[in-house]
Simulated assay, not measured.
Amino acid sequence: MRLVLVRHGQTDANVRRELDSVPPGAPLNELGLAQADAAGERLATHPVTSVHASRATRAQQTAAPIAAAHGLDVTVHDGVHEVFVGDLEGRSDREAREHFDTVYAAWWTGDLDAHLPGGESAHDLRARYLPVVERITDGVHGDVVLVSHGAAIRLAAAALLGDTAETLYVPNTGLVVLVADPAAPSGWALDHWDSAVPVPGDVTAGGTPR
């Protein structure tokens, strides 16, 4: 069984470099819709048994072509939306982005209790995200697809891998694929991780959530 984590396609909030973490959030723009269609084509030959998405509009729009390619519905879940940025929500100014990047960097040096102002810590994100993963993968065969968000995917995947693997920025509609492995200490092993250098109009190198 494999867990296929997919980041949503591009939104206008991405282009504005705006912190957008509260569902339903911005919808996909024209490029994002094309990216979602391409993701559906990419996964059309995979043995997908279920498709899931966060409550964010952009995640559900990205999941739709993937589900359609397999004749499936999209199941929407609480708990797997982007890490909540609190007081920084809706901002795109340098001060807000630098504040986010400082906290985000702290998480990757092991300070998982660092909080965004009025928002969440890495521990908070994992506490709500990982139980959903456990529910949707329990006793399942084939590929389980979950469409979510850049920072959330990176934090959750790191936890599922036991915080032993190097994790990277996830581009729009990038895939992180984990395989269930009883021999692995955490129960999961890394199968594939899409990565790319961020480009203008996508997200920051730190993976600012949108």
Results as ranks from 00 to 15, higher is better:
1 M>F: 00
4 V>E: 06
6 V>L: 15
13 A>F: 09
19 L>G: 07
19 L>R: 11
20 D>L: 01
22 V>G: 00
28 L>M: 05
29 N>V: 10
36 A>M: 10
40 G>W: 08
47 P>A: 13
50 S>M: 00
50 S>L: 00
61 Q>N: 12
61 Q>F: 08
66 I>Y: 04
67 A>F: 09
70 H>G: 06
71 G>R: 03
73 D>E: 15
78 D>G: 11
79 G>V: 03
85 V>M: 07
85 V>G: 08
86 G>M: 10
90 G>E: 08
90 G>H: 11
93 D>A: 11
97 R>I: 15
99 H>L: 03
101 D>F: 04
101 D>R: 12
102 T>L: 12
103 V>R: 04
106 A>N: 01
111 D>I: 02
111 D>Y: 02
114 A>V: 11
115 H>V: 13
116 L>E: 05
130 L>W: 03
139 G>M: 03
141 H>C: 10
143 D>M: 06
143 D>Y: 10
153 I>N: 14
153 I>D: 12
153 I>Y: 09
155 L>P: 01
155 L>M: 09
159 A>S: 15
165 A>H: 10
168 L>Q: 13
168 L>K: 11
171 P>T: 09
172 N>K: 01
173 T>R: 04
179 V>S: 13
179 V>H: 08
180 A>L: 10
181 D>T: 02
181 D>A: 05
182 P>Y: 04
183 A>H: 13
184 A>V: 05
185 P>G: 03
190 L>G: 06
192 H>F: 00
192 H>Y: 06
193 W>L: 01
196 A>F: 11
199 V>K: 13
199 V>L: 15
203 V>E: 06
204 T>M: 01
204 T>N: 02
